[in-house]
Write a protein that binds this DNA or RNA. Sequence first.
DNA 1: TATTATTATGGTAGTTTTAACCAAAAGTCA
DNA 2: TGACTTTTGGTTAAAACTACCATAATAATA
Lengths: 257, 257
Amino acid sequence: MPNRLSSEPNRQRKMNRSDDCCDELKLADFRVGVDNVIFSVDTDLKRLLVLLVMRQEEPFLGQWSLPGTLVRNGEALEAAADRILAEKIRVQNLYLEQLYTFGGPMRDPREAEASYGVRYLSVSYFALVRYSEAELIADGVSGIAWYPMSQLPELAFDHSKIIQYGHCRLRNKLEYSPVAFEVLPDLFTLSDLYQLYTTVLGEHFSDYSNFRSRLLKLKFLQDSGVKASRGAGRPASLYKFDAEAFEPLKDKALVFI
Amino acid sequence: MPNRLSSEPNRQRKMNRSDDCCDELKLADFRVGVDNVIFSVDTDLKRLLVLLVMRQEEPFLGQWSLPGTLVRNGEALEAAADRILAEKIRVQNLYLEQLYTFGGPMRDPREAEASYGVRYLSVSYFALVRYSEAELIADGVSGIAWYPMSQLPELAFDHSKIIQYGHCRLRNKLEYSPVAFEVLPDLFTLSDLYQLYTTVLGEHFSDYSNFRSRLLKLKFLQDSGVKASRGAGRPASLYKFDAEAFEPLKDKALVFI
DNA sequence: TATTATTATGGTAGTTTTAACCAAAAGTCA
DNA sequence: TGACTTTTGGTTAAAACTACCATAATAATA
């Protein structure tokens, strides 16, 4: 049985490769998984959160891990990422993009168990969702929770590394792209926006007053005229992101630390 | 025979997945390839070049394509990228990093031929090598050539898209990271550096004089004291990149358009 | 109701950075 | 020698950034 499977890729290879000479070099047979690093920002408590699920099977039974799935027949990678996200949370607004592909040998303990050369490869995706409206879907079996980035538990596989990688991407995205507006409500105050930035980037990247004037000077935030009164203090103007006005600023930096 | 193979992933799945309910959804069986977008810069002729090889087999027999390979047993993804690069060119200095993973269904025509659900996934890598010292390795069978980015031929698979993606990455890398110094000689003139930037980014990103003073103010270029006289004109100072002095500038931008 | 606390807003002044030039220095080439 | 080329090191005006500050408009409170 191991022989049957391990000889199969060799025949394929003869048909498909050009620059190989040694028949004893076997091609790996892959299972491809998608793992999502799903971030959200709780601006009230000033916490950056990442979504974790508890594994219900070996390996790493009972440990927290990134929500993931193996890719199905005929399913695009991004479709698999969308599917696993939709299975775990209900959201209205989200941003999703590919992060990195982790595929070193022995990153999954199951590779050691099998005598033939099956490999597990993880294409990770990075997502940012609106926290206030995200509803976690508990399937009644496996645990699911938002964990603050500052208090991550021990994670299955190489998922800690994947999260660190995602955290870097999140910071860069926020600085260099209008990703914030994907997860803010249609109408938001400049203070909402500032809270989001400081929660992810830290307090030290800019003064609130300067943050305001820099963004307003760029002319892609439309004042809706409507005011929002939330507790004490002068009511704030509600703004709207104008994608058309932002267009010429594409691939320019927005904010710097 | 198709049945034997297509039923195999299903048994695996029952053992390995948690949140699936429908047995008719089959997991895909993957071949994982690595494709390299290898750039070099010919500063004399002011051309950005990408390395292409001619395919010697179906599909796309006789068409130009990115140099690639299928991943072997026990081989890390980056190791496969290194291997294919070393098979095609001899270089001393190079920069290599993962680019993107393309894995939509039907991106490879071979998927249609097989009645079982084999999928071809491409993990692409981005490389920048020093042009002047890069020696192409012709294996006597398949063609190999540097093509200017401005005159790319029709390419196999989705390789045109991969190259466009790589071109974006190259521009960003050059602006935001010291990748240029990986492919310049140890000693170089500021003019050499400027030629590299203008060839990739276009003439309009900065005046030579301003480019010089901005870089020198950052204090990570050491003047070696040695002068280089190349043809007419005042001899230029040869500089050296000081990685230690650059350290605090990591993840800050270097040059802006 | 008058006062205080809180948040939003709009500004100023000093410094730094950028952009667009310019002129001298130090070579080669004819 | 004189013309030409390339490097080098400026200058200057405009723009942007930083660290503040004053005021406006509301809620909470005495």
